[in-house]
Amino acid sequence: MQIAIEEEGRAYILHLVGELDASTCLEVDREIEMALCKPIEQLWVDCEGLKYISSAGLGVLISHLGTLEARQISLVLYGMSDHVKNVFELLGLHMIMTIVPSKKDAVLQAR
Protein backbone atom coordinates (compact mmCIF):
# COMPACT_ATOMS: atom_id res chain seq x y z
CA MET A 1 0.00 0.00 0.00
CA GLN A 2 1.24 3.43 -0.91
CA ILE A 3 -0.34 6.51 0.61
CA ALA A 4 0.24 10.01 -0.65
CA ILE A 5 -1.07 13.00 1.26
CA GLU A 6 -2.31 16.21 -0.26
CA GLU A 7 -3.91 19.23 1.36
CA GLU A 8 -6.19 21.32 -0.79
CA GLY A 9 -7.85 24.22 0.96
CA ARG A 10 -9.75 22.78 3.92
CA ALA A 11 -9.61 19.25 2.48
CA TYR A 12 -7.11 16.57 3.50
CA ILE A 13 -6.71 13.99 0.75
CA LEU A 14 -5.45 10.43 1.13
CA HIS A 15 -4.40 8.93 -2.20
CA LEU A 16 -4.46 5.15 -1.76
CA VAL A 17 -2.62 2.82 -4.12
CA GLY A 18 -2.62 -0.94 -3.68
CA GLU A 19 -4.56 -3.13 -1.28
CA LEU A 20 -6.22 -1.93 1.92
CA ASP A 21 -6.27 -5.00 4.12
CA ALA A 22 -5.22 -6.21 7.57
CA SER A 23 -1.54 -5.66 6.80
CA THR A 24 -2.00 -2.06 5.63
CA CYS A 25 -5.01 -0.76 7.56
CA LEU A 26 -2.93 0.51 10.51
CA GLU A 27 -1.01 2.80 8.18
CA VAL A 28 -4.26 4.27 6.84
CA ASP A 29 -5.57 4.57 10.40
CA ARG A 30 -2.48 6.59 11.39
CA GLU A 31 -2.93 8.90 8.40
CA ILE A 32 -6.56 9.53 9.31
CA GLU A 33 -5.53 10.25 12.91
CA MET A 34 -2.99 12.76 11.59
CA ALA A 35 -5.69 14.37 9.45
CA LEU A 36 -7.89 14.76 12.52
CA CYS A 37 -5.16 16.85 14.16
CA LYS A 38 -5.47 19.45 11.42
CA PRO A 39 -8.10 22.17 10.96
CA ILE A 40 -9.92 20.49 8.10
CA GLU A 41 -13.52 20.43 6.94
CA GLN A 42 -13.29 17.48 4.57
CA LEU A 43 -11.41 14.21 4.44
CA TRP A 44 -11.23 12.87 0.92
CA VAL A 45 -10.07 9.37 0.08
CA ASP A 46 -8.84 8.97 -3.50
CA CYS A 47 -9.55 5.34 -4.36
CA GLU A 48 -8.40 5.44 -8.00
CA GLY A 49 -5.38 3.28 -7.22
CA LEU A 50 -7.16 1.06 -4.69
CA LYS A 51 -7.20 -2.47 -6.08
CA TYR A 52 -8.75 -4.30 -3.14
CA ILE A 53 -10.34 -3.57 0.24
CA SER A 54 -10.88 -6.15 2.97
CA SER A 55 -13.14 -6.07 5.99
CA ALA A 56 -10.20 -4.73 8.02
CA GLY A 57 -9.80 -1.89 5.53
CA LEU A 58 -13.49 -1.13 5.67
CA GLY A 59 -13.31 -1.24 9.45
CA VAL A 60 -10.70 1.50 9.53
CA LEU A 61 -12.95 3.84 7.58
CA ILE A 62 -16.03 2.93 9.59
CA SER A 63 -14.21 3.34 12.91
CA HIS A 64 -13.63 7.04 12.22
CA LEU A 65 -17.17 7.92 11.12
CA GLY A 66 -18.33 8.96 14.58
CA THR A 67 -15.34 11.22 15.20
CA LEU A 68 -15.63 12.79 11.75
CA GLU A 69 -19.33 13.46 12.29
CA ALA A 70 -18.76 14.89 15.78
CA ARG A 71 -16.14 17.27 14.38
CA GLN A 72 -18.33 18.10 11.38
CA ILE A 73 -15.72 16.81 8.94
CA SER A 74 -17.23 15.32 5.81
CA LEU A 75 -15.79 12.09 4.45
CA VAL A 76 -15.87 11.73 0.68
CA LEU A 77 -14.50 8.74 -1.21
CA TYR A 78 -13.93 9.04 -4.94
CA GLY A 79 -12.48 7.26 -7.95
CA MET A 80 -13.47 3.72 -6.95
CA SER A 81 -13.19 0.89 -9.41
CA ASP A 82 -16.40 -1.02 -10.03
CA HIS A 83 -15.03 -3.91 -7.96
CA VAL A 84 -14.30 -1.79 -4.89
CA LYS A 85 -17.54 0.19 -5.24
CA ASN A 86 -19.45 -3.09 -5.39
CA VAL A 87 -18.04 -4.09 -1.97
CA PHE A 88 -19.32 -0.83 -0.46
CA GLU A 89 -22.72 -1.27 -2.08
CA LEU A 90 -23.11 -4.91 -1.06
CA LEU A 91 -22.54 -3.93 2.56
CA GLY A 92 -24.78 -0.86 2.34
CA LEU A 93 -21.90 1.47 3.15
CA HIS A 94 -22.84 3.75 0.27
CA MET A 95 -25.83 4.69 2.45
CA ILE A 96 -23.63 6.07 5.25
CA MET A 97 -20.61 7.28 3.30
CA THR A 98 -20.43 9.76 0.47
CA ILE A 99 -19.04 8.07 -2.64
CA VAL A 100 -18.61 10.11 -5.81
CA PRO A 101 -17.06 9.26 -9.18
CA SER A 102 -14.21 11.80 -9.29
CA LYS A 103 -12.22 14.44 -7.45
CA LYS A 104 -14.21 17.07 -9.36
CA ASP A 105 -17.36 15.64 -7.78
CA ALA A 106 -15.72 15.70 -4.34
CA VAL A 107 -15.01 19.41 -4.82
CA LEU A 108 -18.62 20.02 -5.81
CA GLN A 109 -19.83 17.97 -2.83
CA ALA A 110 -17.83 20.22 -0.48
CA ARG A 111 -19.69 23.36 -1.54
Score class of each variant (00 low, 15 high):
96 I>H: 09
90 L>S: 01
36 L>T: 00
63 S>F: 02
44 W>K: 03
64 H>M: 02
81 S>F: 07
32 I>G: 10
85 K>V: 00
70 A>I: 00
49 G>M: 02
83 H>W: 05
33 E>H: 03
82 D>M: 08
28 V>L: 12
33 E>T: 07
66 G>T: 09
81 S>C: 08
67 T>G: 07
45 V>D: 12
81 S>Q: 13
55 S>R: 00
40 I>N: 13
63 S>N: 10
75 L>Y: 10
27 E>V: 04
91 L>I: 03
86 N>T: 13
48 E>M: 05
65 L>A: 10
99 I>Q: 15
104 K>D: 14
92 G>T: 00
75 L>G: 11
102 S>H: 13
27 E>H: 11
53 I>T: 01
31 E>M: 11
40 I>W: 05
60 V>Q: 11
103 K>Q: 15
48 E>Y: 05
65 L>M: 15
90 L>P: 00
94 H>K: 08
59 G>Q: 01
100 V>D: 15
33 E>F: 01
103 K>R: 15
69 E>A: 14
103 K>G: 07
46 D>M: 06
93 L>G: 05
65 L>W: 10
88 F>N: 07
28 V>C: 09
37 C>K: 12
104 K>V: 06
90 L>C: 07
96 I>Y: 10
51 K>E: 13
53 I>E: 06
48 E>A: 11
78 Y>D: 12
84 V>K: 02
84 V>N: 14
65 L>C: 06
40 I>L: 11
34 M>K: 12
94 H>L: 05
78 Y>Q: 08
103 K>Y: 12
103 K>L: 13
96 I>A: 13
83 H>E: 15
27 E>Y: 02
53 I>Y: 08
89 E>Q: 13
94 H>M: 02
55 S>N: 01
80 M>A: 06
33 E>C: 05
62 I>C: 05
41 E>H: 11
61 L>W: 03
30 R>Y: 06
41 E>D: 11
33 E>Y: 04
33 E>M: 06
72 Q>S: 14
42 Q>V: 00
73 I>F: 13
26 L>C: 02
79 G>H: 10
29 D>L: 03
84 V>E: 10
52 Y>Q: 05
97 M>C: 12
49 G>V: 00
69 E>S: 13
80 M>C: 15
41 E>N: 10
39 P>M: 04
90 L>M: 09
26 L>Q: 12
100 V>Q: 14
92 G>M: 05
50 L>V: 03
71 R>F: 07
92 G>P: 02
32 I>C: 08
49 G>R: 04
83 H>P: 00
47 C>Q: 09
75 L>I: 06
54 S>M: 03
73 I>T: 11
